[in-house]
Design a protein around this nucleic acid. Structure first.
Lengths: 339, 339
DNA sequence: CTGAAAGCGCTAACAG
DNA sequence: CTGTTAGCGCTTTCAG
């Protein structure tokens, strides 16, 4: 059954083989190739040449066992297929790679227990983890029980034990409010994400606070809880309209939801933007590919990935969780709010 | 500088600690927890309880060094942000996870040398690799020089050393041809992907062979080399129209390109589908979100991931590369070809 | 500047 | 059924 004939022909060339062939000790060979302590130039050269000649490949696992570092970071998220999250994967992977490590990608399918098990368990053999949680409360406990440094990304988790990198969700909500007010909105509504998500609460809060500052009191802002999905936006708008057919300015807490809302409006023969303005959140590519193109509050997934990678690196090197990083967001104004 | 105060409070609990606390030998403790050989129920229970009490976490790195297996598969691809590839990431990650392994995601940004270095080098410490290549020829050489089993996915590589899982690209091309002929196309054109990609060649070949069978000889089929990107489709159609303004049926070898072509048509005030029909390839989600919705030849990224994971698993267990797997594709007919 | 030796934590022979 | 022992391949004191 288990034949293990791996690469039957060539047994692994070890550092010992190289050392013997080069006529130096194991220690010198190691130093020549990996170089904590640099041997003489001529010795180094001889070792390097011998290694190449023999086709030596360093065994990273043995190295990891000895050094206690795997040079690997876990990226844990609910779904790598979501357009915004896949952009985040790109940002994180690039930034982590730039630190000389690689990324172990694990998706949880929105299973909070699985997410917690990954954080608590040791099944992963990584130096640290970057987490996009689907359940901040459960994650907070898991992080406390866990053993490697964790940076929460995009979706904040309320714990001092983890680093935190998010977009400035509240500022984003405020920008959306200004946009919709400036373009002449009168009856405002919002499709929020799932209630337990801080990001959604902050976006909603920023939106409503800014509306209040612009003269629209909170009790006049219609709210519904959906989620960040296409279907969440679609059914969210439908339910809103059932009770308030006069809504003319909608803020969706994700672009997926904005997309869903757009489809619902089309089905109900409500023209966007003349009858209903729509503003999304995230800034994913296809918001510019549909008609009408969708105005949105854009996050910067590359910058988010960079910040998360830097933070987890610092924590691996022994730092306590640095202060939270808040990435700026930007308004992208398009047809869906053009009056 | 390097303080390494990791988890300063608690030093790692090793298996030896557990064995001592439970009053058994190291071997018995190992067997109780990992169980190649099952100790008596009572002993096992005692060890398990002790491990839990001490907060023991198995060191996967040490285990890997001993067993020679990392339980990790590399997924190497040009860009995890591309809509189709991100679907593929989802498929592969899920399938690999189901085998009890995890995925190390590495993107190459279309850098063939980097891709080759990953395949040849040892920087990765994985049991096997699933490769979506950007340069089949370079990859073939790298695979020969490499040391772990490789399965090429989606984009075939011409080497007997690697396993191969692809969609039935030629059949897909034929389906596109039938669709466009059946809907009344008269002047046929194709925007191909980059010349070195086998997938593109096969899609084009299937398309043209089937057209020939339906009475449209190859020399009447207009061809242009673009790439799989949005911009490739957009500029591809533009260049085609410059020379042949009468084209009325277009096959794009990717959905991204079909999307670009749709935009070019809109800019040139060419109505789709009445003046120009467009068919894409891949089956990504947003082809159903634009107007007109785009007909396409759908691949099945979940099935592809499953097949690739199964194949690489078999190869890790010592099998020679199994025969290539060809996944079926399916026509998805939508507005862009509705006459 | 170089070498000898210890040992990271675990599994798998081999004995009892 | 359980224990003893020998490493997996590497880095890193500690001596010379």
């Amino acid at each position: 059954m288990v034949d293990e004939s791996q690469d039957a022909g060539r047994p692994q060339v070890t550092l010992r083989d190289v050392a013997e062939a080069a006529g130096v000790s194991l220690a010198t060979a190691s130093n020549a190739l990996t170089g904590a302590r640099r041997p003489s130039a001529v010795t180094t050269q001889r070792v390097v040449d011998t290694a190449k000649r023999l086709g030596y490949r360093r065994n990273e696992v043995a190295r990891s066992l000895r050094t206690g570092k795997t040079n690997t970071i876990a990226l844990i998220l609910p779904d790598a297929g979501d357009p915004f999250w896949s952009a985040l994967v790109v940002g994180v992977e690039g930034a982590v790679r730039a630190t000389g490590r690689s990324v172990v990608l694990v998706t949880t399918g929105f299973d909070a227990e699985r997410e917690a098990a990954l954080l608590e368990g040791t099944e992963l053999a990584v130096d640290g983890a970057i987490l996009v949680t689907c359940d901040p409360d459960r994650a907070a406990r898991a992080i406390a029980a866990g053993t490697v440094p964790v940076v929460t990304l995009d979706e904040p988790v309320d714990t001092p034990l983890a680093g935190r990198v998010t977009s400035d969700n509240e500022a984003g909500g405020r920008l959306a409010a200004d946009l919709l007010v400036d373009r002449g909105g009168r009856v405002f509504a919002i499709v929020e994400g799932r209630a337990r998500l801080h990001s959604s609460r902050e976006r909603s809060l920023g939106f409503r606070r800014r509306l209040a500052e612009r003269g629209i009191p909170d009790e006049r802002v219609l709210r519904i809880v959906g989620d960040y999905s296409f279907e969440g936006g679609r059914s969210g708008l439908r339910r809103l309209l059932e009770r308030h057919p006069d809504i003319d300015a909608l803020f969706c807490c994700s672009d997926n939801a904005a997309m869903g809302a757009l489809f619902e409006a089309r089905d109900q023969r409500i023209d966007v933007p003349s009858q209903l303005m729509v503003c999304g959140f995230d800034g994913i590519e296809w918001t510019s590919w549909v008609r009408p193109t969708i105005s949105t509050i854009a996050q910067d997934p590359i910058a988010l990935g960079l910040a998360a990678a830097a933070m987890v690196t610092a924590m691996i090197d022994g730092a306590s969780p640095p202060p939270p990083v808040l990435q700026p967001v930007a308004v992208v104004e398009r047809e869906s709010t053009a009056r």
